Amino acid sequence: MNLELLKSERKAKGYTQKYMAEQLGFKDRSSYCLIENGKCSVDIELANRIASVLDLSKRRTFEIFFASKVQVSST
């Protein structure tokens, strides 16, 4: 999961973590904060709900939640 991209998309929309938590039906902001800090896994249903709140394209959703970062080797 690309946490930096997720945060930047949220901030670009002007949304707070509290707003995201409310839209996703979480109890409080800290529940959403765990996602952005990589402390909580995101299943496909939650990824789609977040994508919906942020109005992300399918491509952007894939980039954030499903594309794996490949570390470039220096060998």
Rank of each mutant, 00 (worst) to 15 (best):
F26T: 09
T16D: 13
Q23D: 04
K13Q: 15
D43S: 04
I64M: 05
L34T: 03
Y19G: 06
A47S: 06
F66T: 01
D28Y: 08
R59S: 10
V70G: 10
M1E: 07
G25Y: 08
G25D: 13
V72W: 07
E45M: 02
V42N: 05
K69S: 14
S68H: 14
R10I: 00
S52W: 09
V42S: 06
A12D: 13
S8A: 12
K13M: 13
E63W: 02
A51V: 01
S57D: 07
T16G: 09
S8K: 15
I50C: 10
L24M: 02
L46S: 02
I35P: 07
T61M: 07
V72L: 15
Y19K: 03
L46D: 00
T75A: 15
V53Q: 00
K11T: 14
F65P: 00
A21N: 12
L6Y: 09
R60P: 07
L54S: 04
V70A: 15
G38F: 05
F26P: 03
R59Q: 09
T75F: 14
K39P: 07
I64N: 07
E4W: 10
F26C: 04
G14L: 15
R29I: 01
M1C: 02
I35A: 06
F26K: 02
R10G: 05
I50G: 04
C33M: 08
N37H: 08
R10V: 01
A12F: 03
L34Y: 12
S52A: 07
A67G: 01
I44S: 09
S68G: 14
S57A: 03
V42G: 01
I35C: 06
I35W: 12
F66P: 00
L46F: 01
E9I: 01
E9D: 06
E22F: 05
S68K: 15
V70H: 14
L5G: 01
A51W: 14
S8P: 00
L46E: 02
N48R: 11
C33N: 14
Y15S: 03
A51G: 09
Y19M: 00
N2L: 06
L24D: 08
V42C: 09
K7F: 04
S68N: 15
E22I: 08
K69M: 14
S74I: 12
L3C: 00
F65S: 03
M1D: 00
N37P: 07
R49F: 08
T75V: 14
G14A: 11
M1A: 09
K58T: 10
S8W: 12
I44R: 08
Y15A: 05
I44V: 11
